[in-house]
Design a binder for these strands. Sequence first.
DNA 1: CGGTTTTGACCCGCGC
DNA 2: GCGCGGGTCAAAACCG
Length: 304
Amino acid sequence: MDDAHNPDPGGNFATDSNWNLGSDSDTVNYLFTSDRESSILGEFGWNLHSARTSSESDRFGGLDRIDSENVGFASESSRFQGSVSCGGEACTVGSGSGGGAGVGDVSTSNPSVSSSSSEDPPEKATSSGGKLAEIPSKARKKGQKRIRQPRFAFMTKSEVDHLEDGYRWRKYGQKAVKNSPFPRSYYRCTNSKCTVKKRVERSSEDPTIVITTYEGQHCHHTVGFPRGGIIGHESTFVNHLTSPVSQFYYPGILLSREGPLNITQSQQVPVQTVESSTLREPTPQIPVDEGLLGDIVPPGMRNR
DNA sequence: CGGTTTTGACCCGCGC
DNA sequence: GCGCGGGTCAAAACCG
């Protein structure tokens, strides 16, 4: 909670691979901002590239491409600033205007994998010979590589590991993380038709930072909030259900394509409407809620 | 009693 | 081929 734990109080975290969140070969971009005041956040937006970032130019104020995993950072003061926009299969994050060029090789192109498919079989793999992880058995034939959903990771300063985000999650695993004293927890959305998963782990560099990684997108609405629609938590969640525009809400953070924004506790802040063309919103109408990831991941990069 | 968490075992991909 | 580490399963324990 104090800056003493911040690896880089000056505004950026280290750019090495200490923040590796994935075990696979996904390209990972790490986005960090200082946990200082929002002025820094507003100016920096997104700060750095992973060493594995593509060679594309940094058109968006620091980060140019997201292949499959984005990492943002929410400050302790429950503020987040920056933007997320997506185009095609790739997602860009930046403080400026965006709209990815669809670059990248996100492994979500398999049309048979759809997190919102209503015909998803029970996720429990039933293939003969053992358990098949990560994707439904229907979409996974023998010899097929694992196919990952796009992933988005956020870093939040919080004493609580599992941040409320409006969805109900069931923990299905926990693993020790190499080179980290903190375990990684695996959660699955309790909705049987929803394939969204998330990982929660605490940074070994800064134990005050919780790294939450979402994979997939919800195909259902959030559950209600018990207290006036807002989770009373240090990292405030802003219920995105009421949002008429394509803002990106997150526990304690607000993602918007437009300029810097602040979220205060238990307060929903109106923001400018997102241009539908950029985010490929089919209509300017109130979007059907597709859950947290549905907000974070614009339609352009969804499989459907 | 139903839903969730815990936890050891197992599977898979990758690097060597 | 083997070992390692990440990810998942599933039975048992736990909890409201």
